[in-house]
Structure formats: C-alpha cells, structure tokens
Design a protein around this nucleic acid. Structure first.
Lengths: 105, 105
DNA sequence: GGTATAGGTAACTTTTGAGTTACGCAAATA
DNA sequence: TATTTGCGTAACTCAAAAGTTACCTATACC
C-alpha cells in the first residue's frame, strides 16, 4: 500500500478500517493487539492505522516500543457535518409537506 | 464499470456520488440533467446512479423516456446509525470524565 | 552485549472500482 | 414511418487502493 491521503469518506469506506474504529471504541489498542483481530498481515494493519490517523479518526501515543491507538473526534465530525446538511433536507421537506397540508385544511 | 454492489459507506466514498447527492438535495433530476454537472460520460453517470439507487440513497421514477432521481432517506440512515454509535462513545467518555471530576471534588 | 519484541518502510503484485467507447432499445417527434 | 432523444448494457482500459514479503530500526529483556 502506498498509504494514499484519503478524505474522511474514503477512509470509512473500507470495512477493515470501520472494524478498527469499532474495536477502538471499546478500548485503546496497540498495533499488534489491533492486528490480532484481522487476517491480514501486520504491515497492512499498520498502513490502515496510518490512514485513520492522517484523517483524524485516531490519535497515536508512543509508549516505549508500543503505539497505542485511541479514537479521536475530528474525523467523525466531518462526516457528521455532511449528514447534518442532508438532515436539513429531510426536515425542510417535512415542513413543506406540513405547510401544504395546513393550507389545504 | 461492473456496477459492483457497494455498502452505504463505500457509496459515499466517491466524490462524484457525493456531488450527485448534493445536486439532488436541491431538486430531483433526470440522468442527463445530472450528467450536465460532470465531465464524465453519461454511461458513467448512469452507473453511479445505479449504485446510489441500490444502496438506498435515491429513488428513481420513470416518466416517459426520462428517469427522475430523488433523494431517499434509507441510505443516509445507515450512516447516521453508525455515527450515532460513536456519538455514544464520546458522550459516555464525557460522563466518565465528569464523574471523575465530581468524585475528586 | 546479544536476543526477542513492537513496529515502520520499500518494492512489488493483485484486485477492483471508475472511466471509456460501441451498441441497442423504447419513447417522443417530425 | 423515419428519426431523434433519453437511457441502459457490454466489453474493455486504466488507475489506484489493498495486500503481500523482505528488510530495517528501536526498545525491552536476559
């Protein structure tokens, strides 16, 4: 993997990375303890971690020779903002319908 | 394009598809009127539409020889549910911190 | 100091999604 | 009825992401 720079949407597009975030939602984990949950090689996990990190989904804290990954808000917020925009769409659509019904009555 | 079966996350991973959803948030559009907003060929747009449809992001209504695409909730809800899960993570984390501070005081 | 452990990087292969062109079909139009 | 318009599908190319193995560095341990 060339560890490309991906946006938040592309980052969570990968099922493995989503699984990693799920695992990290339970506890902070080192690279190896993360890798135990996957069939792929450790270098592959390492690169996914790098991608998650550079997109702001996790932070990494070096403790001796280990690296602890912890969930971080930033990456999620970008997604939330995007969804919020469409939320607006549905609510305004609902209001339009509501107005329509009220005017009819 | 072989129009692969993609999950909701992979679907919005593509910038073009996100742009399509944005355009459709303003108005329902036919395939061609959608395609006008992109540089790619119409068949390419057609396939993106198919992907958006099969993942529940849009509905399609045939009107004569035209096909009108309209935003649909289903696809978005899957994403929202996912984000809601992590939202829980942050709030519970905040509560833990809150409890910690209260116990100290 | 030697060895095991945790992890990163480089180079390469494989997979697959995104795009294209060519073609076909049905509905509208002349 | 012939033609144009709107769109789908098939077959293909291309680019890039995902995975691999091999190798290197640094910390911990004996």
């Amino acid at each position: 993997m060339a560890t490309p720079k991906l946006d938040a949407f592309q980052v969570i597009g990968d099922p493995s990375r989503r699984k990693m975030l799920m695992l990290l939602s339970a506890d902070s984990l080192t690279i190896n303890s993360l890798a135990e949950n996957f069939q792929m090689s450790r270098p592959a996990v390492s690169k996914h971690v790098k991608i998650l990190y550079s997109a702001g989904f996790i932070s990494i804290k070096d403790v001796g020779r280990e690296r602890y990954c912890t969930l971080q808000k930033d990456g999620f917020e970008e997604l939330q903002a995007w969804l919020a925009y469409f939320d607006q769409f549905w609510t305004s659509r609902f209001k339009k319908l509501e107005n329509l019904l009220n005017n009819k009555a």
